[in-house]
Amino acid sequence: MRIDWWTLGLQAINLLVLMWILSRFLFRPIAQIIAQRQAAADSILNEAKSAQEKAEAAEQQAHKMADDAAAARQGLIDAATGEAEKEKQALLSAARAEADTLRNTARKEAERIRQSEAALAEDRASRLAVDITARLFERLPPEARIDGFIDGLADGLVKLPQTTRDELGAAGSRVTLKASRALSKAEEQSIHTALTKALGRDLAFTVAIDPSLIAGLEIETEHAAVRNSFRNDLNRVVHTLTERGDSKDA
């Protein structure tokens, strides 16, 4: 066995040179490019992380804006609802007031119409009663339309207050005696006798014909009236019936 020291030395030198060459032209550039790539990857990861954080912040901001918008919308809805409720209440109040006014007006109008109709009915009833009574009295003898009412007229004079009685025919004045037809001399004499007896003194009168009395007699002065006629009785009956109808309606 023999060691070639020249070869050993040359190989050692060769290996050292190779070590320098590979270190300079292979390992170091590769390590640098790996480090650069790692740094670039780290930078990209950091940028991605930063972008992610920004995106998350933007998302949170968007959520917050959406919540604020929802709250504002709800506030507007509540305000509009309150305003609409107020408006509704005001409209309802106005409508109720207007309805009450219309109802009161209608009620008054109905009352007026009812009263008008009642008056018309009363008038018609009076006319009908007068017509019926007049036709009935046409079947009686003409004396019955005067004689039967003389005593009643005298009783009416008796029931007058004393002062009113004293004023009748005072100072030679004449009172008006209404009759449904012209009186005969005998009928005038009978009436004069009955009136004189009722007053206790003589009473001068002037006869006035009023066919609307139907039958009966009436005395009228400036301050008093004594009525004893069918017209007066019918008017009283109709008025009484009308008052009863009103009380029932009420």
């Binding site: 190989q11 060769n14 290996l15 040179v17 190779l18 060459i21 590979l22 032209f25 292979l26 550039p29 590769i30 490019i33 650069q36 790539r37 670039a40």
Partner: peptide, 21 residues
Amino acid sequence: TWAIMAVLTLFGLLLRAHLAN
């Protein structure tokens, strides 16, 4: 060994010239 050195050197130079990310 010189030949191997030459090959490895050439390989290193070529690789370094074409290094990329």
